[in-house]
Design a protein around this nucleic acid. Sequence first.
DNA 1: TGAAATGTTGGGGCG
DNA 2: ACGCCCCAACATTTC
Length: 502
Amino acid sequence: MKDQTPKQTAIFWFRQDLRLSDNPGFKAALEWAEAHGGTVVPVYIWAPGEEGDWPPGGATQVWLHHSLSALKQSLESLGSGLIVSNAVGTSKPLTSELILLQIAQESGAGAVFWNRRYEPFAIERDKEIKSTLKNTGLHVETSNGSLLIEPWQVRTKEGKPYQVFGPFWRSCLAQLEINNDLPVAAPRKLPPLTKIPKAASTIEELNLLPTIPWHTGIVNTWKAGEASALEQLQKFIKSGLGEYQSMRNRPDIEGVSRMSPHLHFGEISPRQIWYAVKKKAAHDKDLRAAALSYLREVGWREFSHHLLYHFPATVTEPLRPEFRSFPWESDKEALQAWQKGLTGYPMVDAGMRELWHTGIMHNRVRMIVASFLVKDLRLPWLDGARWFWDTLVDADLAQNTMGWQWTAGCGADAAPYFRVFNPVLQGEKFDPDGEYVRHWVPELAKIKSKNIHRPWSAPLELAAAGVTLGQDYPHPIVDHAEARQLALAAFQVIKAAKQINH
DNA sequence: TGAAATGTTGGGGCG
DNA sequence: ACGCCCCAACATTTC
């Protein structure tokens, strides 16, 4: 190759958008390449060191491994391929920036494309990379591939970011009625990947899978990748949407869409979901309410990104400053009991075990276990957030942060301090037959549903089932009624702190 | 996207 | 027959 080779190639940098359909950044790269008579080099860079304090957790890595494999296969089946680059484990430290520059040089690229991310450290890094690449004469273009509306495109009348979900979503809906691009179909074929850069690695070499195989539950529960995401969406729309409103809080029933990990990795876009659901509802008027209630949950995902973008400090700091003086406990044993699903509260333990085993936890149960950690045990919400970060396949900084701050009461539109979930009542209400508990806490499988959420109050039944509390299943690590009083008392402390600050 | 405490009402048992 | 008490059942208030 001569030095004067025209820069015809476009690099597309895959990040949290591991799909080919409705991928605006990828589409832009393809169009640029076509216009310049060149090709596209699809790239994925593994650089966990650039993820701030939140490098991908164990479950995330397992998912990523399989999602990258699926993506690579689709790219290859369309005549292209995926360049996988590893910034970790080499003798000299590499960065995404250096890797992109190197690939650009080797492939004679004239442009680099990607879809935007919204985590504070990612914004910072991407800004630097963009500036560096531009300074070397490259054309750089970024797109919105992950959200219905950009965080900065929704504002209150005073021009401020929203802190309450209701008006936020109303405003989004109004905008989306007027202006919402249709999803773009996947390309039917791709320009060939002619030259493999020297830095190219393999998915295997990223070492994303654990050496001790704890991840079989995840593998058996899920199928990562775009095809699986689209298939699951269709299945949900066909057979789950109608009952969504009535069943969405029932962890013992398949009542939810299970889109969250697919959305996190960008195997599907929220816009694809939006249009598929809208289309179904237009076809079947009876599904209108169900469709709105489901899309509202997609709205919470949008809201979380809005909050993360406008209040980046909330990743570690409470949005409400008075919570800095909340008297959190420090109890390693209690934290571990919670993590392992050994609190003695069946509903909490079932959730934590489901999480550990499958990488997911039903949303209703997330609220229950989170409330238990933060209010019954009074352990810091960040401890919970970090555990979820490591164990959830859908771990997403925006949603994780918002969710935990909501539960702790220190976030936007948060649960008021006095709202303390009773794990027994929540179990009786949302797992009325005890099937969810029976599945994840098999020690209690023989206990009748009347008592399964409070086994300690049924000594005869426990004896008949051969279960001894303290041996086969733990005693409750706290008394909920007492714990509630202590939580309410703890909140008086920050009430006082708020007074002093004002 | 709670739960507990407190207040109110009305039917039925009972002296 | 009547008033009194008890206590579900429901409503309201409080945390």
